[in-house]
Amino acid sequence: MLPKKNVMLGLVFTVVPLFHAGSTVMAADAPAPATVAAPAPTPAMDPAKMRERGQILALSCSGCHGTDGKSSSIMPSIYGKTTGYIESALLDFKSGARMSTVMGRHAKGYTPEEIHLIAEYFGNLSKKKN
């Protein structure tokens, strides 16, 4: 558990890239504890938190499938596919209904709820930019 640092707001400089040569900028932040608090179940899932979770999960995909799921190689693009398509593909990889080399091994690492969040993230991303 990390103790909280003093917040020294007055000392925060505006730091613009390329313009802080020679300057000393004091750090001023309040790190939150890096451990995660005990969960307290409540009925409704905060949509913003769901999106955040979806994003964290989806960031894993870009390593192989490209940033935002846009592939520049033989790897299939995820970008441009619908939520429903991505969700059913991942569920089929997970169950083994769809053959794969490596995707089955990945998909088994996620719950159906997480798969839904990943699919929704990419589905929304494609909708937003089209």
Binding site: A40, D46, K49, E52, R53
Partner: peptide, 8 residues
């Protein structure tokens, strides 16, 4: 963790 998310 999922519960955590729910708890906001």
């Amino acid at each position: 963790f999922n519960k955590l998310l729910v708890s906001g």
